[in-house]
Design a protein around this nucleic acid. Structure first.
Length: 467
RNA sequence: GCGCCGGUAGCUCAAUUGGCAGAGCAUUUGACUCUUAAUCAACAGGUUCCGGGUUCAAGUCCCGGCCGGCGCACCA
């Protein structure tokens, strides 16, 4: 059966429901519209048929009568899920349901599979994730969560544009995977006969653009990390990274809290959110606490990056953490913070002043060179963003990279590699600059009130089926 | 990668101690001029994820594999 190549629809369900809310039972509007969508339910009754049709915006009933509907018998045999285009008058039935009284109709496409049980929908995770197109019709929460994600991305972009950040794109195929501590995916370019890695962060490229004179840049894009899959981790995820010349990390924290609160405002109309049954507020300002003070509070004694390394190591092993020989006091303090504090940080908060040992791209604090001007924001027990005053000194940067290379040699497969091109870029002069990386999937989870990252990713990474 | 749990009709789910593999919806056929998950009647629908094993008998017990959920690890 051939189907049309085109259909001129001129109305959507939800606006019709609104426009004709005043029609009383049995009243006819006299207005003919053309609507299109999928048949979700069908109730036939002899020479009448009632279908529930859904489009992007909502649902409306299609009211067919053998007396006035062309090809009535065929209409009554439509399958659940079939796409139809319908021309008819907007009426309200005697029983009060706003309807399009079908004069003529066309089947635009046939659905060979249904969209699950018409009451329970589709619940099987495997089916939902592998065939999101069906899940989207079967489950309203899938539609709202993915829509929220889209709105979060739109809001973030518009707010960056409004703050005079220029949107740029940097390479995803990188000869050296760098800018974060993570294991990369590798691939091969045939014509160049070269190994490439999918980027784990766009950070160094973006700072090179600042060297080049773009004072404010941002990139909203995918990064790839070859690590575990969990309800909070997808191998490819979306990060907003931005850099502002002449700012320090204090400026960037202010921008971050305003940005996130603004996104919540744009998408939800409020900064007060309920996540998994617990409330919190995105409203700025967010508290700023040093890592050392939070860790001290948690362990019940004063600790800092200057606490003897062996004492920090003991506090860690007391808590069941295996301490590696290569860890210095800074790494130990950072680990101590993570095991004692991280998951308790429910309300949005900035954790600041990270040890230089775990921050190879951050600028040292002027008053304490063992610490950096670095922050991470936390909400609902999860890291949401990471930012710092950028290290602009090429000599110090080379020393940091060399330290990373030593860690790599000692078996740390997430340590960074030395990037000579980046050091050369710094030698041309990076002005004082602050940067931010914000995990957009995590933010979308908070906004959409989803506990699994896959619910805010249309097609999450799954193991291919094989046999 | 490790641990726990799960996989039964297209979808949602049953199946007692190891004892004939079932229901609702969808599909097919029929009835019905105001239905709302319409209703009523009937037909059909199965490699119980895959492969071995134990047993008179396996959806159920054992071993291996595949895929998924959750937790841990890694990480954002």
């Amino acid at each position: 059966m051939s189907t049309p190549y085109q259909f001129d629809h001129n109305a959507h369900c939800a606006p019709l429901q609104e426009t004709y809310a005043h029609l009383s039972d049995g009243e006819e509007s006299g207005v003919v519209v053309k609507v299109a969508g999928r048949v979700m339910l069908m109730r036939t009754q002899g020479k009448l048929a009632f279908a529930t049709m859904r489009d992007l915006t909502g649902e409306i009933q299609l009211f067919a009568m053998s007396a006035i509907t062309a090809e009535f018998e065929e209409f009554a045999k439509l399958h659940l899920g079939d796409w139809v285009g319908v021309t008819g008058e907007v009426v309200r039935t005697k029983r009060g349901e706003l309807s399009v009284k079908v004069a003529s109709w066309e089947r635009l496409a046939e659905a060979l599979h249904n969209f699950g049980d018409k009451w329970a929908g589709i619940t099987d995770y495997d089916l939902r994730y592998r065939h999101r197109e069906a899940d989207l019709w079967a489950n309203a929460t899938t539609r709202t969560s993915l829509t929220r994600r889209s709105e979060v991305l739109r809001s973030a972009r518009e707010r960056c544009w409004a703050a005079n950040f220029v949107e740029v794109e940097t390479p995803m195929l990188n000869a050296i995977p760098t800018g974060a501590a993570a294991r990369p995916f590798s691939t091969h370019h045939n014509a160049l006969d070269s190994q490439f890695f999918l980027r784990i962060a766009p950070e160094l490229w973006l700072k090179r653009l600042v060297v080049g004179g773009f004072e404010r840049v941002f990139e909203l894009g995918r990064v790839f990390r070859n690590e575990g899959v969990s309800p909070r981790h997808n191998p490819e995820f979306t990060m907003l990274e931005l850099y502002a010349a002449y700012w320090n990390y204090e400026d960037m924290m202010s921008f971050t809290e305003e940005l996130v609160a603004g996104i919540a405002m744009d998408v939800l109309g409020t900064t007060e959110v309920t996540y998994q049954g617990r409330e919190f507020s995105f409203a700025a300002p967010w508290p700023r606490r040093t890592m050392a003070s939070l860790a001290s509070e948690a362990v019940g004694e004063e600790v800092s990056v200057h606490t003897p390394r062996e004492h920090l190591a003991k506090l860690l092993s007391d808590r069941g953490v295996e301490v590696h020989a290569s860890w210095g006091a800074g790494r130990c303090l950072s680990e101590l913070f993570e095991v004692t504090c991280e998951e308790n940080l429910w309300n949005p908060m900035f954790v600041i002043d990270f040890p230089v040992e775990v921050s190879p791209l951050s600028r040292r604090r002027a008053d304490d060179p063992e610490l950096t001007e670095r922050f991470e924001s936390y909400a609902a027990g999860r890291e949401l963003s990471n930012g710092f005053s950028e290290l602009i000194d090429p000599v110090d940067q080379r020393a940091r990279f060399e330290e990373q290379a030593r860690l790599a040699a000692a078996g740390d497969d997430e340590a960074m590699q030395i990037d000579e091109d980046y050091i050369k870029a710094l030698e041309w002069g990076l002005p004082p600059t602050a940067g931010l990386g914000l995990g957009m999937d995590r933010l979308a989870m908070l906004i959409a009130d989803e506990s699994n990252i896959r619910e805010v990713i249309a097609f999450p990474t799954l193991k291919p089926l094989r046999d």
